[in-house]
Design a protein around this nucleic acid. Structure first.
Length: 572
DNA sequence: GCCGTTTTCGGCCCGACTGTTTTCAGTCG
């Protein structure tokens, strides 16, 4: 698979062209092509073999030529030349907020600056302020930008951004005059990480709302503040933008700022095909220039002859076509979830007792919960030896007799050993209601070995769910090498469910593979893997991921009521 | 550089904000 390498080179060319001050449309064209190539399932070599490179959306004659060149020679001459002509380090300067291609080129030409370190020195020595259209303030801003760049973490995990946004929304809700109020951007779409937090609101007194926003206690720095919008920094590096918008345009504005870019491009095409031009402010009828305003997003989509599209699937991955044809999925919702099939207690490495976990689950309105403590092979997590598991089964039987309208399921999170064998014998696994099988060791196996290891676990008749199937931790640890396509095929064949681990640092399976699983007819279990009562609330993140994967209620194992779930678990 | 029921050229988002100016270029989203 050389797709990723090609995507990297195309994206790099986009950066280099931007530094040269080439047309921004050209720059965007390279980045768009890079994105498409990266997300393609099929090998570029196969496509090139059929002579169909130019059929790839966003790839025309020029880029197709460069891709073939790479496939044949391993190089792209134009890219090598660009790289040679551009001092290394300049691309990095573009990452400093406030610096664009024009300024970076000028800094390089006039001051010989080609790295962040050199720029910092130049600014401290007040050499920057002597350049045209520069002054003491821009110099100071550059230094602040450099400070933030040094502290920057990459993208913000959803598990950090969402609670933070909710806190800020809570403050804004109390501000006099605030009407509509919502997050937009990738946070609204529920992506696993977000770049920043976008908030939109309406108010008859925009300036007062902006003043209230920049004085919320969590705000550490105000980057920009105008009459209708402001940008601030919270928690050292997280940027939060607020825009106050005209109420009659709220629907078009929130649609626009929710994105994704690709979805919006597609939507504008639809609008044009129906004789309208769509902007963030209105829908303009081309025939007579009549402007139509929408205060509700739903009305905008309906006016374009399509169903309202849930934000989580606005990625131009077929949702626009589906909405036009009235065949959007009815995505799984929080109220569909009837239980949690993977939680821990203080019997292994959880913080709370079974009773405490049960009370918390009942409080969420669940019908059941599977207590899946670790098996003894995971000694570091106080895994249960067989006799302790039996003891725990006894306790749960007793608790179930006392529990009204709630079922505690006996479960285990059993280790899949390096050789693919399970950490408990069949006999005791057969006594469990729910068996989640997971990999927690031997992460560095080769792809073939790891894939076979997981598949052999699925071939056990007792395994119901594969826990966190790729082992990745967002921003911490890469997924282990595994051929998920083969794993999912095996899941379909053996009737094993895949977990969407809802912990915000896992979200594993991710959105894309969840969708693939659904296509193959594999069931998914959205589990929190909670190690404490408050861990149960992570379900929210798992549901967002499931929705991004186009999952409906019928695709989700723990959307089954207790009776149907038991029937399913007892099959075969 | 890509694209096309607007079709081989001309459009592709454009308005808000900042810091510098003295009327506007550059950046951002």
């Amino acid at each position: 698979m050389r797709n990723e390498e090609v995507a990297r080179l195309l994206r790099e060319m986009g950066d280099l062209l931007e530094l040269r001050g080439e047309s921004s449309f050209k720059v965007v064209a390279y980045r768009r092509a890079a994105r498409t190539v990266e997300s393609m399932k099929e090998d570029l070599e196969a496509i090139a073999g059929r002579g169909e490179l130019e059929a790839i959306p966003g790839v025309g004659k020029a880029i197709a030529g460069k891709i073939s060149e790479f496939l044949e020679t391993g190089r792209i001459e134009a890219r090598d030349r660009l790289l040679q002509e551009t001092p290394p380090g300049l691309a990095e300067l573009l990452q400093i907020s406030g610096l664009g291609p024009k300024t970076v080129s000028m800094l390089h030409q006039k001051l010989g600056v080609s790295t962040v370190a050199e720029l910092e020195v130049a600014a401290r020595e007040h050499r920057v302020r002597r350049l045209p259209r520069m002054g003491p303030t821009s110099e100071k801003n550059i230094l602040r930008g450099i400070e933030r760049w040094k502290k920057r973490s990459s993208r913000i995990p959803l598990g950090v951004a969402l609670p933070l946004a909710q806190e800020i929304l809570g403050h804004l809700r109390k501000v006099e005059g605030i009407g509509d109020l919502n997050v937009a951007g990738s946070l609204r779409r529920g992506r696993e990480t977000v770049g920043d937090i976008d908030i939109l609101a309406t108010s008859p007194a925009p300036e007062a709302a902006i003043r209230a926003f920049v004085s919320i206690p969590v705000v550490e720095e105000v980057l920009m503040k105008g009459p209708t919008k402001a940008s601030v920094i919270v928690e050292e590096t997280i940027q939060v933008d607020l825009r106050i918008v005209d109420p009659r345009s709220f629907g078009t504005v929130i649609q626009y700022f929710t994105g994704s870019k690709e979805h919006n491009v597609k939507l504008r095409h639809v609008a044009l095909s129906k004789g309208y031009s769509l902007s963030e402010y209105s829908l303009t009828r081309l025939a007579d220039g009549e402007e139509l305003f929408f205060d509700r997003e739903e009305d905008l989509y309906h006016h374009l002859g399509m169903d309202w599209i849930p934000p989580e699937i606005r990625e131009d991955e077929g949702e626009v076509e589906a909405a036009l044809e009235g065949r959007l999925p009815r995505l799984v919702e929080p109220s569909d979830i009837k239980g949690d099939l993977h939680v821990h207690s203080d019997w292994s490495d959880g913080r709370h007792s079974i009773e405490e976990m049960v009370r918390a689950a009942q409080g969420l309105g669940y019908e059941y919960m599977a207590m899946c403590d670790h098996s003894h092979g995971l000694g570091i997590a106080n895994g249960l030896a067989e006799d302790r598991l039996r003891e725990k089964m006894e306790l749960i039987r007793g608790l179930n007799e006392a529990a009204e309208g709630f079922a505690i399921l006996v479960g285990t999170e059993v280790e899949i050993r390096a050789d693919g064998k399970l950490d408990y014998p069949d006999e005791i696994l057969s006594e469990c209601d729910v068996v989640v099988a997971s990999v927690h060791s031997g992460y560095h196996q080769r792809e073939r070995e790891m894939t076979n290891r997981i598949i052999s676990a699925m071939e056990s008749e007792h395994v119901d769910v594969i826990g966190h199937p790729t082992g990745r931790k967002i921003g911490e640890r890469e997924a282990y090498e595994v051929d998920l396509e083969r794993v999912l095929e095996a899941a379909a064949r053996t009737g094993t469910a895949m977990e969407i681990n809802a912990h915000p640092s896992r979200l594993d399976l991710n959105d894309r593979w969840s969708r693939r699983a659904r296509e193959l007819g594999v069931k998914l279990a959205i589990n929190t893997d909670a190690h404490s009562t408050c861990g149960l609330s992570a379900m929210e993140y798992g549901i967002k991921t499931a929705r991004r994967g186009w999952l409906e209620r019928k695709d989700v194992l723990n959307a089954l009521g207790l009776a149907d779930l038991m029937k399913y678990l007892e099959r075969g």
